[in-house]
Design a protein around this nucleic acid. Structure first.
Lengths: 315, 315
DNA sequence: TATCCTTACGGAATTCGTAAGCATG
DNA sequence: CATGCTTACGAATTCCGTAAGGATA
């Protein structure tokens, strides 16, 4: 048994059982991959993949039992390298962060600037994507740290750790009628609305609030980020609903914001990590700088827990 | 990186950093082992072992951080083979159980008999030893399942699961004075006593009880097992204190037993397992047959937890 | 017929054990 | 001076990629 065999198996699952694709991903030849898999199957005395004729089409029962162990083996192998780098390279390396636009634009800049000052040798890679894409990047190992408001705890191999809570604000042009008197869902529903796309930045809690109040939203435009939303509010196309953190009185002149925390449920921004995947020391420092209560030991402890669903019992 | 390198590192620690011994244990040449270790160190960019001149004398800081990961890798590799065997061999294989004499002699026979009937293809190996030896056999992988009343949860790599509770009985020759009137520690202390060796079968709770009552035991003989104890009680050398389960009214004629559950603390017999080490399906069946409340999923869940002491933080 | 996996084969790289060298207690 | 690790070297094995073969949608 060797790691190349394990990599072949993992990649075969990820590539939808197309060994040609696996070979490209692993920078090797297709017959090589085929061999690796067959040799592992032979050594273990089982068939890992279902074969229809010569094509692989899925995992067998033994294969399903095997897969989580294979994933753990490869994760631990990477952990060894991470430990090696932590001691040999110290504060030099790469940190890959995947975040939604909201986080990257409003929550991260201060943290990133401080981090760069403390760890000048670390090259930061900031990826942007939907919460689903972020989760996918974590699972595949493309990203070390994911930051989003939802969907990070939905996959078994991931853990989510709560960082901070926030609420929405309503954004309107200056001297808008909504600036007079108390803000209610009823009044809001009377205007054309501009807010986040479904799946982004607490859009769920907005929909929920209107739905529960029995009101229909007149959504004229939805966008992935607050900057776009504010731009169209500035054009007079409607009333915006954005994360409070995304509005700055000075920068966003001449728009005005109205606190809407009483209208929509509180949102929680979380950090997502891969279970069992040790991070470089500076990554734990980054996390603590983003959420001071997440001390390295606490984060490691959370990562060390295994998904609650027990491994499928063999046989 | 390959598994032979990892095995060399693990074995080097186990063999007290003597690579000659490691080579014997791994059935290979000494220069081979030396090379494996140096190549791994080179790949990871760190020194794993402290070298005084040419000799290895201990682990470096990176080595200490590495070791638990190496152990997990080798455990998971074995898990792969176990899964393979579970599917390919089914109910054929080996089960290695380490137990104290008390367990092997009194608690296990019925379970073992039933197990053999249910799994005729499984070759059972029953090892006997002190709780410390049992723990050691579990850690080294010599034994799959350990059964003892103490010391199984004292090592990080092990989990202990409570199986059943039991108390002691006092064993006396027929028509002994202690058979008259209520049994008390005070009365017991007046006789020469015969019981288990320190570290065996609840001896601790016996010492505790006398100590707390401010009484001195007149210990004339201590032994590892109840059979020896009962033999000397039969010779009139003293009064015996044994686990209640170890006395059978018929078999142990003409001796008499007096229930002593009110004198000594309750003992708990536990099963000990290696964390993260998947067992063959029949092993989980054995456990459930020994302790019906320990269903396979519960046992697996317990094994999946990692030792509470977090990994030493790198750097 | 195009895609995709397997088999076959030959060259290259790796691996491993033996033998010799050298430092240390 | 015996023990224990390293270096050197040559043989054997393993590994891997190319090329050809065959099955399936």
């Amino acid at each position: 048994m060797n790691f190349q065999q394990l990599r072949s198996v993992r990649e075969a699952v990820r590539c939808g059982f197309n060994l040609t694709e696996v070979a490209q991903a692993l920078h090797t030849s297709q017959p090589g991959v085929s061999r690796q898999i067959r040799e592992l199957e032979q050594e273990l005395g089982i068939e890992i993949f279902v074969r229809q004729g010569k094509r692989l089409t899925g995992l067998t029962a033994p294969g399903r039992a095997l897969l989580p162990v294979v994933e753990r083996l490869l994760t631990e192998a990477q952990n060894l390298h991470r430990i090696g780098e932590d001691f040999s390279k110290g504060d030099v390396g790469t940190l890959s962060i995947a975040a939604t636009h909201s986080q990257a634009r409003y929550a991260l800049p201060a943290v990133v600037r401080d981090f760069q000052a403390r760890h000048p040798g670390v090259s930061l890679k900031l990826h942007q994507g939907s919460p689903q894409q972020i989760a996918q990047m974590l699972v595949s190992g493309e990203a070390d740290i994911g930051i989003a408001t939802q969907a990070l705890a939905e996959q078994d191999p991931l853990v989510a750790l709560s960082c901070y809570r926030w609420t929405h604000s309503v954004v309107v042009p200056p001297e808008h009628e909504l600036l007079q008197g108390p803000l209610t869902l009823q009044r809001l529903a009377a205007y054309p609305l501009i807010t986040y796309d479904v799946g982004y930045t607490g859009r769920g809690t907005i929909d929920d609030a209107f739905h529960r109040a029995g009101l229909n939203m007149q959504l004229v435009l939805s966008a992935m980020d607050a900057d776009v939303i504010k731009t169209y509010v500035g054009l007079g196309m409607g009333v915006g609903i954005v994360a409070s953190i995304a509005f700055d009185e000075e920068r966003d002149q001449p728009l005005r914001a109205i606190d809407a925390r009483h209208l929509f449920a509180i949102n929680t921004t979380s950090i997502g990590l891969r279970r069992g995947a040790l991070l470089r020391a500076y990554a734990y420092d980054f996390i603590q700088s983003f959420a001071p209560h997440l001390k390295p030991e606490i984060v490691m402890q959370a990562q060390a827990t295994r998904a609650s669903a027990a491994e499928p019992a063999p046989l």
